[in-house]
């Protein structure tokens, strides 16, 4: 029994692509989990969804021009957030409508480009990720984007937290909130690029929201929230790669299913904010 369990974990490691997939996914899981705490607290989930879809034309253009995909993806992802900010400031529309209009526009434009510009991009891989077939060049781009994300968040973590919690106080003590707004958008675009190869465009948003959402239900302290977020994300990413190997299913989807299961467990069983404990305390009151 124990041996077969051990075998379940060790057998895939004889393949180089599996080892690569495991550590790249784990790395991506950590980067996204850290950012997801800020994204959930700021209420920017929809913005994350927008960025991830908006990178498609960037990827296509990058391949066509022969520059790294990460550069194109980043420019278009970040560009979309700037466009969203501009349209929101200058029209009477609410933010969700603006986001809906802008990101679908970028996404559709990317689809049109991908069918007309001759390239060897597999659209399916962009949309759903392809970490098992990730190339050395893609790994390097993923690493650079992820490390920049981590360093920026690490250095600015207190200010970003204050910006999420109380932007007025940030202004009152003379901090540049405009700069923080764009810093957070910048790392959002970078982490989307990081997760592109693992989860794919459609599911990136799960990596950027679900770990933070799960942790938020389990903790009242930011540091603990961060730790829980990273732990659930790491667990999901590593197990997800294994399960996808053994069951021969899509890796990104497997990871996201696990993340979601952990979220559901937290939602039901969380000691303070779970459904069970709230029902119990509700009974006490009535």
């Amino acid at each position: 029994m124990f041996e077969s369990l051990l075998n379940w974990f060790t057998a895939p490691l004889q393949y180089g692509f599996m080892v690569k997939a495991l550590w790249v996914s784990a790395f991506v899981g950590v980067v996204c989990a850290v950012l997801s705490c800020y994204i959930t607290l700021k209420g920017w989930s929809l913005m994350g969804d927008a960025v991830s879809h908006a990178v498609v034309p960037g990827v296509v253009v990058a391949y066509a021009l022969g520059i790294p995909f990460a550069v194109g993806a980043f420019l278009f992802g970040f560009g979309a957030t700037v466009a969203i900010g501009y349209v929101k400031e200058n029209t009477r529309l609410k933010e969700d409508a603006v986001i809906g209009v802008v990101f679908t526009g970028f996404f559709a434009f990317g689809l049109v480009l991908s069918t007309k510009i001759p390239s060897n991009i597999d659209l399916f891989h962009i949309l759903f990720g392809n970490v098992l077939g990730i190339s050395q060049g893609d790994i390097i781009q993923t690493l650079i984007a992820g490390l920049v994300t981590l360093v920026v968040i690490l250095v600015r973590r207190k200010d970003l937290l204050l910006f999420c919690f109380d932007p007025n106080q940030a202004k009152a003590i003379g901090l540049n909130t405009q700069l923080m707004y764009y810093t957070l958008l910048l790392v959002l675009a970078l982490s989307t690029v990081t997760a592109l190869q693992t989860a794919g465009i459609i599911l990136v948003i799960a990596m950027l929201v679900t770990p933070g959402a799960t942790a938020y239900l389990l903790s009242d302290r930011f540091d603990l929230m961060l730790a829980i977020s990273v732990a659930t994300s790491l667990l999901s990413c590593i197990l997800g790669v294994y399960i996808s190997y053994h069951l021969d299913v899509a890796t990104g989807a497997c990871i996201v299913v696990l993340l979601t299961l952990l979220f559901v467990a937290a939602m039901i069983f969380a000691p303070k904010y779970g459904l069970l404990s709230q029902t119990r305390s509700g009974e006490n009151i009535t």
Partner: peptide
């Protein structure tokens, strides 16, 4: 030079910070 005490409904009371954390935010500058 300027400190500000906001109205209660401007604050997200579910935010995972402690009283100590909040007061420390006054010192960031």
């Amino acid at each position: 030079l300027v400190a500000y005490v906001p109205q209660a409904d401007e604050v997200d009371w579910n935010f995972p910070v402690s009283v100590w954390d909040v007061v420390m935010m006054g010192r960031y500058g």
